[in-house]
Nucleic acid binder design. Structure first.
Lengths: 235, 235
DNA sequence: CTTTCGATGTTCACAGTGCACACTCTCTCG
DNA sequence: CGAGAGAGTGTGCACTGTGAACATCGAAAG
């Protein structure tokens, strides 16, 4: 066997007095509890128990139960961001700048909704109380910045009149957030996967229409055609 | 003094063994607790205590804590419906059928959002778990029917192409629900009353654009003009 | 007018929760 | 090496949701 002095440093599987990474372990466990059974079936005590630590150990790392939950919300937003980035990465490249801008915008929405459907309880917790948004009222997430860039590109490509640019983030967010929330609620025909993604595409077209103000820019038509023909799969 | 045999029948203010209307009293109290302090600050026991009854008395009227909450959700939906009806009643009559249809559609959204802003915690509870929606996934509320009628009228007035009619309820609902949720979350500039209602009007215009597909129907322009000139106050 | 019975409320009991306090263990640094 | 700070434990308290047995009332049946 190896020298105990070195083995003690890390990688000790047996019960140690100091956990070593309790904070993260608790957040991870809390998240698991939330995802499988909603916010009701989550207690600080059970999270601690499952991690193999006394209940009060959690208070060395979190003020409160709600503080632990806030940490869960934080990783929720980061996870959502990853979904959005993946969705954007999945769109096909196009020579047409307008089509690319439209596709990137739509991909943002696809990632948002995909995250919602895969982690409904987590999303509910993220928007369950006044938390998760920064002082300006936006998520401190790269995803929001990507949305802004996509909208800028839409203007640059001549698809969106410049005077419609202001506040466009919020409008786009409104549609996508509403869709996501209703989807996880099982509203209308949104619970079935196939139907939902078809309706999402409709909703995204509809959102773009609303954002740009009109359908009949020539470049717009071309971009729509580009979308339906080629799209890469998400891994 | 009156004959005791008759006074005993009803209207006894003193402590009686049988409450007489416990179920309603509990729902009312539970609703009050939810509205002032969110779902966390609501316990079956406290509701019972405030009503002046033992905790377990509630179990004669409700299966569960969650069953009581479901009753709260029910009255929430009815209350929301009243807001929508009031908002619709508040729009000015117009000779132009198209303008009237647009206004009725928008009013639905205004009522929805107004309810959300006035009863944020209640709305959160209403959409906090898989509840409140019927088997088809729609709220069993007259408000939804009114939305459908407004959309039909939009088609009848020639503002919305008939081929865009299918699924329009869901799209309208998506925008308005998303707006309402983000508003009560304090997202972006939505927490300030004045800014919010201005943005709501923008969002409603934007939703109509998306629903109808194009801005430049002549009747559409006229209806927009009609909206900005005259609107009655909500009482 | 009694008797009886079902609906409605009460009390007691139990497990589980969030949290405060005082205690113990271990690692690090002077 | 020894002291102190940071991390984890145990005990205790007020509270919760819920089950089971008991108490009370109103109305229907005799």
């Amino acid at each position: 066997m190896a020298t105990p002095s070195k083995a003690k440093k890390k990688a000790r599987v047996e019960r140690r007095y100091h956990h070593g990474d309790l904070r993260n372990a608790l957040v991870e466990q809390a998240l698991a509890l939330v995802e499988g059974g909603g916010i009701e079936r989550f207690s600080l005590r059970e999270a601690a128990r499952l991690v193999g630590v006394s209940a009060n150990a959690a208070y060395r790392h979190f003020e409160d139960k709600s503080d632990l939950l806030a940490a869960v919300v934080e990783v929720g937003f980061r996870r959502q961001e990853r979904y959005i980035l993946e969705a954007i990465a999945a769109v096909a490249e196009t020579a047409n700048a307008g089509a690319a801008a439209v596709e990137r915008l739509k991909a943002t929405g696809r990632g948002y909704v995909r995250f919602a459907v895969r982690h409904p309880e987590l999303l509910r917790v993220m928007f369950g109380s006044h938390a998760g948004l920064d002082a300006q009222g936006f998520p401190h997430t790269a995803g929001y910045g990507l949305l802004s860039k996509a909208l800028d590109a839409l203007v640059a490509a001549g698809l969106m009149p410049a005077e419609r640019r202001a506040g466009a983030e919020l409008k786009a967010w409104t549609v996508v957030h509403g869709f996501a929330m209703l989807a996880i609620q099982g509203a209308g025909p949104l619970h079935a996967d196939a139907k939902r993604s078809a309706l999402l595409e409709e909703a995204l077209d509809y959102a773009c229409t609303g954002l740009c103000g009109r359908l009949d820019f020539p470049a717009w038509r071309r971009s729509c055609a580009a979308r339906t023909t080629k799209r890469r799969r998400v891994p």
